[in-house]
Amino acid sequence: MSVIEVGFWHELDQNKIQCDLCPRYCKLADGQRGLCFVRGNEGGRMHLYTYGRSSGFCIDPVEKKPLNHYLPGTPVLSFGTAGCNLTCKFCQNWDMSKAREMDRLADTASPEQLAKYCKTHKCRSVAFTYNDPVIFHEYAEDVAIACHEYQINSIAVSAGYITDIARPRFFEHMDAANIDLKAFSERFYKKLCGASLTPVLDTLLYIHIETSVWFEITTLLIPDENDSNEEIDAMTQWIYNNLGPSIPLHFSAFHPDWKMKNKDRTPASTLTRARDIAMKNGLRYVYTGNVHDTSGSSTYCHNCGLRLIERNWYQLGEWHLKSGCCENCGEPLPGRFEDSHGCWGAHRQPLYLQDRN
């Protein structure tokens, strides 16, 4: 099953329909697909063409999503489909997000099969990642519902580019999320992503105010595009003032890819500088990613300074939490924690759910 009729659309004049799932509001004649390529008009109704299809399955550490305050050390079954509703020139999963030949790329699995695979492989969560789950909303929703029957959590790794209409139903079924805040300027979003900043900020506010979803934020810093002191200062002040001091923020290093191979890699010093600015603005849990930085990737008690969770890449070391609180001073650490961390470690385990001949 790969093609199903879906919602979040309405009829227009001249035999067209409009997609209301993301802020692009694609207007489609019969036979046309949206920019995402996976939703389209078929016979005057909206259809999703990738239901039950994936570009691959892999068991990852939850820290790779990245989520540092959500069941640390536990394994996550990760998968994505194809297509995307953004056009990021720096996309680091472009082979999946820009894929157009799903029959060649896809593995298949029903929501029930995925839930059973998670249970069999002792995954604590399933993660919708690699490309944005917003565009395969219905498949992600059904997988989340099936996984909840087995007490398996659902994680959305998303750019947050979704409409007011679609947000409530999508996040209703998510337990955690990492939202990719790509920059803090409309110029960047328009020039490099073909999108707009405002809907992403609206998504962050919605999750924070209207849901119980645990969420963290990631910003990929690209040299001379979104890494100035001024922009990082403005962004982290907005996060502090609107989302509070306890939202974990990840600054990640860019490497040349897709249509931005002319750019240099992000120096580790840029991530450290951004982290310093964010913490001076009051954010308590700020991390560096895609670089080897044990100090910048570990978690510290904001009250007494004790290192609560040591991270060496995705491998966990010291653990000084008791009932989610600092062992030294008793200060609670925001997030979802258990008495001990998981032992999955840093390795990745690809899964092939169907035979490929």
Rank of each mutant, 00 (worst) to 15 (best):
L221F: 04
L221H: 05
L221V: 00
L221P: 02
I222D: 04
I222A: 05
I222N: 02
I222T: 04
P223R: 06
P223L: 12
D224H: 14
D224Q: 13
D224N: 15
E225I: 03
E225H: 09
E225M: 12
N226F: 04
N226K: 05
N226W: 06
D227T: 00
D227F: 04
S228P: 01
S228Q: 08
S228W: 03
S228C: 05
N229V: 10
N229G: 07
N229T: 08
E230T: 12
E230Q: 12
E230Y: 07
E231F: 02
E231N: 06
E231K: 01
I232T: 08
I232F: 09
I232S: 00
D233Y: 06
D233H: 06
D233T: 03
D233I: 02
A234F: 09
A234P: 02
A234H: 07
M235P: 00
M235V: 00
T236G: 05
T236V: 07
T236F: 11
Q237D: 01
Q237C: 01
Q237W: 05
Q237I: 04
W238K: 01
I239Q: 07
I239A: 02
I239C: 02
I239P: 00
I239T: 01
I239V: 08
Y240S: 02
Y240Q: 02
N241E: 00
N241M: 08
N241I: 02
L243Y: 07
G244N: 09
G244E: 04
G244S: 09
P245I: 07
P245G: 08
P245E: 14
S246I: 09
S246A: 12
I247S: 10
I247V: 13
I247H: 12
P248A: 12
P248V: 11
P248C: 11
P248E: 15
P248I: 10
L249F: 13
L249C: 10
L249D: 09
H250T: 09
H250P: 14
H250I: 06
F251K: 05
S252N: 10
S252K: 10
S252T: 14
A253W: 11
F254K: 05
H255S: 10
H255G: 09
P256L: 12
P256W: 15
W258S: 07
W258F: 13
W258Y: 15
K259S: 14
K259H: 15
M260S: 11
M260F: 12
M260E: 15
